[in-house]
Computed example of a mutant assay.
Amino acid sequence: MQTYRIYFLLLALFMLGCSDNAGEDLQTKEEFPNVDADYALLVESNDLLSLINLKADAETIFLDPGINEFSGISLASVTYRDGNEISIFNSETDCSGKISLYDFKNDAFIETVVFDDLGNCDLIVRAIAHSGNKFYVGYEVPGTGAKETLYYIRIIDASLSETEFVDIELDKRPLQAVFSNNQVFILSEDLEDDNKNSLIVLDTTIEELVADINLGFEVLRIFKSDVNSIIVSYPELHTLISSSTMAITATIRYEAGKEPNFGDAKSSFYDEVGNLYYSMPTNLSGTSYPNIPAVYDFENNTAILYYYENFLSEQEQLFEFEIGDTSMVSYDAKNNFILIGYQKSGDPGKGGLLRIRPIPNPAFIDNIDLNGVPFQMYTK
């Protein structure tokens, strides 16, 4: 199997050689562990999310018919993932909203009704973050003027018998929120200043805005690193901002044509050492797929791209697995496998999960077909 690794600091590109099974007997058990693992996998089908449990080791993977707490809920465009927890916002027919919080690790599920005090059907939620039983929701509502729009971050405490909240007004439209170091970092845009981006910082201990950092233009997305820094992604570079001092600690520029594109990814996942697993948009360059699996190493500033054409035969791609597009990428640290969720080409409502071994000994392991398209997952 071949993969491509992009070095953004050295600005070089090279190809890994093929790997076959002939040399596997020479590898140590430590290099190829065989450990039981449980996968909790959220899948989307007919605009609903449901949970599928899988059991696996290094040789087999199969469905676990056990009962779980997560029931089918509507798929929403506003979600937030932090470690083993994911929160999802959905609008309700009475113009209120509902936040669903699922804990993959403990199979715990709670729902919280929000915005039932406003009854405003023109309310638009644009960002959400959470920590513990507190939620931070960035939203907008029409103002009193004909073209006026008001922006807020709502702090919701769901730990009380009666949910309490605080609204803090923002002067820019919220786009995304990330919780780190007892603060909420809110990516925003100023519609009156050519959509210039800012990072608004909410101190959750005093529930006040404490900083407004100018980010310039064309910010794609923000991420929280494994050491709680804030990663700001642009088309041509990314920067790291300290969540404690608010100072820029690093700026990494890419060579034209070798951009990792993780800011445009539909989904992403961090492993324990800070590598980002994501579905990378390709613009169909060098592949027939719009998105392919990729891994970005922030310590070494390198990206590894896994082209389906390099580890699956044409027969497997088109007919056996029916690979249509990459929907999700994750990692099984117990067995050192990359987990690739994909959508079927013949039936967009169905998908599958591929397992492959990463470099330096890349190899296809197995596949399982699923009644739904993988959305997010957690390895227990």
Rank of each mutant, 00 (worst) to 15 (best):
G352I: 09
M246Y: 15
Y4V: 15
D212M: 12
K29P: 03
I252C: 07
V178T: 10
Y7G: 09
E192N: 12
Y270E: 12
A294H: 00
T379Y: 08
Y270I: 06
D212F: 10
D212V: 14
D366Q: 05
L187M: 08
Y80E: 00
S159I: 13
P360T: 04
G23H: 09
E192V: 08
F364G: 13
R126Q: 05
D203A: 07
S96M: 11
Y378K: 01
D226C: 14
Y277E: 06
L54Y: 04
D64P: 04
A76C: 02
Q176E: 13
F135G: 06
V141G: 03
S285L: 08
N283W: 12
S19A: 13
F375D: 01
A58I: 03
P348F: 12
V219E: 10
G263R: 01
L11H: 13
S285Y: 07
N53Q: 01
V219C: 11
G72F: 01
I153Y: 10
R173P: 02
S74G: 07
N291S: 12
I365E: 11
P374H: 07
N84M: 07
D271E: 10
A22N: 14
I200R: 09
N335K: 07
Y296S: 13
E92I: 04
V137M: 09
Y80H: 12
G66I: 00
V329M: 05
N361D: 14
G145M: 11
F217T: 05
L41D: 01
F319K: 14
T112H: 04
P293Y: 15
T144P: 03
N90S: 04
S198D: 13
E164P: 03
N195R: 05
I61T: 10
L160Y: 10
L118T: 02
A211L: 09
V141A: 04
P33V: 07
L42F: 02
K334R: 15
D264T: 08
A37S: 15
G351W: 03
T326F: 04
I365A: 12
K258Q: 11
I67Y: 00
V219A: 08
T251K: 11
N228S: 15
E111G: 01
R355E: 15
A56M: 10
T326W: 03
L9T: 10
P33T: 05
I231L: 14
D116M: 00
N310Q: 09
N84A: 14
R154K: 11
Y139L: 01
D38S: 12
F179G: 06
Y4N: 12
S161G: 14
I99R: 05
I128M: 04
D193A: 06
E207A: 15
D167G: 14
S198C: 03
Y39P: 02
V232A: 05
T282H: 08
L41E: 05
L11F: 11
G83F: 02
Y151L: 06
L10K: 15
G97C: 06
S330L: 04
I292G: 14
F262N: 00
N361P: 09
D47T: 06
I252F: 05
G66C: 00
L123R: 04
A256L: 10
F375R: 00
Y296D: 07
